[in-house]
Write a protein that binds this DNA or RNA. Structure first.
Length: 429
RNA sequence: GGAGUGAUGUCCGAGUUGGUCUAAGGAGCACGAUUGGAAAUCGUGUAUAGGUUAAUCCCUGUCUAGGGUUCGAAUCCCUAUCACUCCGCCA
């Protein structure tokens, strides 16, 4: 959510940001008009309320006679009714304003490239080299099925399309990856591990801005206020909602493993082969709460922490600075990390798979979650800046590991760093 | 799921026959005095959101949340949430 003051004081900046994000610019003008209405009504109500308060107080004074009190009572009752009337208008206008603000995108950072599609994303760096195969690499669904560590048919049987079952060494490999990532982030990168609820209240999804815009991509209980988390970003960023943190505590760095649940309605028919896109997937997510002055540098550090996983797993990857049209609506800037999977497109060959998005949200989410910090004892509270990034998304990193580490006989070599988490196993066969 | 009790500022805590509550008091914190320095002591200040303003002043809302009664609500009524106790159920 943007500060309403931005609309009042820097309308042109807001409009430019909206234009870059492909958002209706006239909405900014409409918001200014509603804001003017709200403030006019508010001033009117408050003046009348002040009058009523003074008069009511006088009613309780000692010297007043019952007759005077009765006479005054009718008069004040009328004033009270009048206040209610205008106040109802005010509430309505405020609600309009709130709704309008909930839908507005964040303003992109100056460094974000303009563009509509992924072709306009800027390649920041490419790390590692693609492996040269002396044989034709197989896609992960073939490897997994043959090794009997991946079962698509039974996944579909019990849960429907876009579900699969990991079995034996497949399940163990994923568990090892999760354990390895958590260990790296907690022991080397300085994050505190969080195990959050996988179901949250609706207000949390408003807080991180999945709602109201993307309601149809989330699962929720029909009877109670429970929503399945689409990413650990939601519970973890909301952890300190409505709090005022001591400035000295920042930055706060959390890492959490959770399953993620998504309807994927927008992606119907896309990526149906293999385990690339499902209704349920696992992810290790990093979340940072930082001061406004440091958020830019913290984004680079976050990206670096995510990359450390790719490096340790010795997977070729690239980093992209995502353009205005492709990035999320609510961050100020977003880097994507893509790892290379040599057979993920089957007959067509390899593919870069997005395994992480690292974003800075500025104070956008902090405003929605009312999450502030006090820079110095006694100082006025300010909104924190929030950031998050995957570190990393599991099924896709599974794909990359399986396809990059496959051998000609169909077995898969276990990456060195994962072996301690798999009882020393070197090969899945 | 049933019954009961409770929720006050950063924290503790008074206030519940509706009207100087303009929320006492204490702790903590900040600044100052005192001191060679510190402790102790004393003094001053110290919630938050918004409106108005050049700024101050001032005004409005907030005593868990949302409604209601009333000229007027921390206080009375209703609903919800959370915590605790007892019962039931369960892993």
């Amino acid at each position: 959510m943007l500060d309403i003051r931005l609309f009042r004081e820097q309308l042109e900046t807001v409009k430019q940001g909206f234009a870059r994000m492909g958002f209706d610019v006239s909405e900014a003008d409409r918001i200014v008009v509603i804001d003017d209405t709200v403030r006019a009504l508010k001033t009117e109500v408050e003046a009348m309320q002040a009058e009523l308060n003074i008069a009511s107080k006088a009613m309780g004074a000692k010297g007043i006679t019952p007759e005077e009190r009765d006479a005054k009572r009718a008069e004040l009752r009328a004033l009270g009714d009048k206040i209610s009337g205008v106040n109802a208008q005010r509430t309505e206008a405020e609600e309009q304003l709130r709704k309008a603000l909930l839908y507005t995108p964040n303003l992109p950072d100056a460094k974000v490239p303009n563009g509509e599609t992924e072709t306009e994303n800027v390649l920041v760096r490419e790390v590692g080299t693609k492996r040269e195969f002396s044989f034709t690499p197989k896609p992960h669904w073939e490897l997994g099925t043959t090794l009997d560590i991946l079962d698509f048919e039974r996944g579909v049987k019990i849960s429907g399309s876009r579900f699969y079952v990991l079995k034996g060494a497949g399940a163990a490999l994923q568990r090892a990856l999760i354990a390895f990532m958590l260990a790296t982030h907690t022991e080397q990168n300085g994050y505190t591990e969080i195990y959050p609820p996988f179901m949250v209240k609706e207000e949390c999804l408003y807080g991180t801005a999945q709602l109201p815009k993307f309601a149809d991509n989330h699962y929720h209980d029909a009877e109670e206020d429970f929503w399945l988390v689409p990413t650990a970003e939601v519970p973890v960023t909301n952890l300190h909602r409505d709090e005022i943190l001591e400035g000295a505590r920042l930055p706060i760095k959390y890492v959490a493993y959770t399953p993620c649940f998504r309807r994927e309605k927008m992606s119907a028919g896309r990526d149906v082969r293999g385990i690339k896109r499902g209704h349920q997937f696992d992810k290790v997510e990093m979340v940072k709460l930082v001061t406004p002055q440091t958020s830019e540098a913290e984004l680079e550090a976050l990206l670096n922490d995510a990359e450390s996983i790719c490096k340790a797993l010795e997977l070729p990857y690239r980093v992209l600075l995502v353009c205005t049209g492709e990035k999320g609506d609510f961050n100020t800037m977003q880097y994507d990390i893509e790892v290379y999977a040599p057979a993920a497109k089957g007959e067509e060959g390899g593919e870069w798979l997005e395994v992480s998005s690292c974003s800075n949200f500025g104070e956008f989410q902090a405003r929605r979650t009312n999450l502030r910090f006090r820079p110095e004892p006694g100082a006025k509270p300010e909104f924190v800046h929030t950031l998050n990034g995957s570190g990393l998304a599991l099924p896709r990193i599974m794909i990359a590991v399986m396809e990059n580490y496959q051998n000609e006989d169909g077995s898969i070599t276990v990456p060195t760093v994962l072996r301690p988490f798999l009882g020393g196993k070197e090969t899945i066969r």
